[in-house]
């Protein structure tokens, strides 16, 4: 019971991270293309300035939660995905430094460099995150002791001895790139005005179309790579509500964007991300990390869960701490309501 609870709490942290940091990653992907003047660039970055760092905290808090609730999974996955994780760290460093320090530099050339770094790092991060999720869905060559090590690529086939990147995980990366770029475009449409808002809205439709196509492709690919993903759904048919939610949320993004209801369209995109991740979690549950080396080596919920006292104590402070954190977050976002206006704020 506690295992199930912690499974969903960690899932909530991951969803929180993807939904929140997702839009500032998407803004990072788009800003080189949508912002053409220095003023537009500043407006674009100001639309994520006060919140991106807090959004990234979800990753840290989620990582820490995973660490104490499921130490086996944390140890196995982090060491097994060693190389891609290190690259993710480097990208997070470059991204944080470039977005935050550009305002301390007044030489145009260096600002352009940092803007380029920010765009590139954001783009690669979305792809890596998508590929990471696809790696978990596909499974990894776990040994009996619960460890594995994956090279970045082998023969690009998702077989028994795959690499981090194969055709399937690349599809996962592209889905994430498109989904988060769309998420960022919807955020920009919500937070900016004038030409910037128009441009952001103009990319929504093509992105949405691409995302709908990619979603279908990724679904078929997942079933092909791991047919067992469907087992939970057929066992509890009511859970087909999850894929239905994916479709409905995409339709809602399209509808509300057309009507110019930016907030609703953005929230629909949040719901889409939630259903996609929930659908993936449910597809593997109660396995946390499937093995390509036979089901005996799967890292399951029961096997990975920390001791009873650890998770009981953890629950007490976790609920208290996250309630506080959500308080700050609501406070920050409520102060940051409405369109960004660089001229009026003076930054």
């Amino acid at each position: 019971m506690m295992g199930l609870l912690w499974f969903w709490l960690v899932a909530v942290m991951i969803v929180g991270y993807v939904v929140l940091d997702g839009f500032d990653l998407g803004v990072g992907v788009l800003h080189l293309f949508l912002a053409r003047t220095e003023a537009e660039r500043k407006t674009t970055l100001a639309s994520i300035g006060p919140v991106w760092d807090g959004n990234e905290v979800w990753l840290l808090a989620g990582g820490g939660t995973l660490y104490f609730a499921f130490p086996l999974l944390y140890a196995s996955a982090f060491s097994g995905f060693y190389l891609p994780l290190m690259i993710v760290l480097w990208l997070l460093i470059l991204r944080g430094v470039s977005v935050e320090l550009r305002n301390h530099i007044d030489v145009g050339v260096w600002r352009s460099l940092l803007d380029g770094v920010f765009g590139l790092a954001s783009t690669l991060l979305t792809i890596f995150y998508g590929a990471a999720l696809a790696n978990v869905l596909r499974g990894v060559p776990l040994n009996a002791d619960g460890y594995f090590f994956l090279p970045l690529w082998t023969d690009w086939q998702p077989g028994a001895m795959p690499g981090i990147l194969d055709w399937y995980t690349v599809i996962g990366g592209l889905v994430a790139l498109v989904a988060l770029t769309l998420h960022g475009a919807l955020w920009l449409a919500l937070k900016t005005s004038g030409r910037l808002e128009q441009r952001a809205r103009s990319v929504v439709s093509p992105l949405l179309l691409a995302l709908a196509a990619m979603t279908v492709v990724s679904l078929i690919a997942t079933i092909a790579v791991r047919p067992a993903s469907l087992e939970n759904y057929f066992r509890y048919p009511v859970t087909f509500i999850v894929p239905a939610g994916v479709v409905a949320s995409l339709a809602a993004v399209w509808l509300w964007n057309r009507k110019g209801q930016a907030l609703k369209a953005f929230l629909a995109s949040c719901v889409y991300l939630f259903f996609m991740l929930a659908g993936a979690c449910w597809g593997v549950y109660p396995v946390l990390l499937p093995a390509t080396t036979g089901a005996d080596n799967d890292i399951t919920l029961d096997r990975a869960l920390s001791g009873p006292h650890t998770i009981a104590v953890g629950l007490a402070w976790w609920i208290f701490g996250m309630a506080l954190a959500i308080g700050y977050i609501v406070f920050v976002y409520s102060r940051f309501k409405g369109k960004v206006n660089v001229a009026a704020d003076g930054h």
Binding site: G63, T65, Y67, Y74, S79, S306
Partner: peptide, 30 residues
């Protein structure tokens, strides 16, 4: 802790994973 010190993390995560997670939850959000 996970990438380079996996065997340590696996054994001790239930203890020191707690303060590390608490740092994120109680301090970084604030």
């Amino acid at each position: 802790f996970g990438t380079n010190w996996a065997r340590f993390s696996r054994m001790s995560g239930g203890v020191i994973g707690q303060p590390l997670a608490m740092e994120g939850v109680f301090s970084f959000f604030l």
